[in-house]
Simulated assay, not measured.
Amino acid sequence: MPIDIQLKPVEQLLFRGEIVAVGRFRCDATHPLFRDSGPCSHHTFVFPRTITRIHHLGGPSFVGEPGRVAFYNQHQLYTRTKINDVDASDWFTIADDVLLEMIREHDPAASPRQPFRIAEGVSDAQSFLEQRRLFDALDGVVRASGAPQRRAGGAYHFDALTIEESVLGLLRRVVRAAYDARPRALRVSSRHADSVEHARRIIAAHPAENVSLRSLARACGQSPFQLCRVFRARTGETITRYRHGLRLSLALERLRDSSIDLSELALELGYSSHSHFTFAFRRHFGITPRQFRASV
């Protein structure tokens, strides 16, 4: 039987199979459910499209942003704080038995009630690009399909084997990367971890701005040297690389609009020219912005 999915008013189901369900969450900051949309209905992986601060009640706060993945256990309570005007994300739910088997490869202590003992992780560029293409392909079929193809629960019919195998492969890579990074993150003190998260919030709120290292460090209560050190120790990347990754991940959403000029988009994202943007995009994703736009 297909997974039992309980949708909130700000969610749409795109696919539901026996092992995997895929849906979208879109909530404007003015919506009553923005700050608190209630407990998570399922064990869920979430890939943000916009930038929002998330606080797990009884747990950590972090910036949910493109290029990262958030993990929610069923019944998890959490709240949001506005950074962008809308919280937009793509979510994936996996059958409990399959999820637990996947997680226990990396965390033998994972339990059926709490399979995720981490709140977030980094998605490598290729996995992020694959996730976006997979989701947008599903979304495109849903938008183009007529009512006769609807299934019970509001989802649509696809080749379930292909979709479920693709999702399991994608999420296994994301989980492996998140758990591989866990020991590194735990070595950073809570005070320094808070400084890193504050730096992320500042950059995420204005990713196109070329903030100076000294002013960023001052805002985080650290020396420039110390902030660079603890940022890399916690995230595994430099501040500059983090900012590039965020800008380029945000670019994927903007590139879906064919009316946006690439030179204008480059300047909007904080790059000095079209060529600079194209070089950074190709180095990050392995293709040019024009090639990505042609594929969506």
Rank of each mutant, 00 (worst) to 15 (best):
S41P: 10
L13P: 02
I103H: 03
L57N: 12
R53K: 14
L77E: 15
T79S: 14
R26P: 00
R16E: 10
P66I: 01
Q76A: 13
G67H: 01
E101G: 08
D97P: 00
L14R: 05
L33R: 07
K82W: 07
A109W: 08
N73K: 07
A95W: 07
L77I: 10
R68F: 12
C27E: 04
P60L: 11
A70W: 01
Q131C: 14
S127G: 00
F25K: 14
F34S: 02
S111P: 04
T52G: 05
D96H: 09
A88S: 13
Q114A: 11
F128M: 10
V86Y: 06
F71W: 09
A70V: 04
F34G: 00
S61E: 13
I51T: 15
R16W: 01
E11T: 05
F128N: 13
T44V: 08
G17F: 00
D85G: 13
V20C: 09
Y78H: 15
P60M: 10
C27W: 01
A88L: 14
G59M: 07
Q126F: 11
G59R: 14
T30A: 15
P60A: 11
S37W: 06
T44F: 02
R113G: 11
L14P: 00
F34D: 05
D97S: 11
V20Y: 01
Q114F: 11
R68H: 14
C40F: 10
F128A: 09
F128Y: 15
Q126K: 14
N73G: 05
G67D: 01
N84L: 07
P48T: 03
R117Q: 12
N73T: 05
L77A: 12
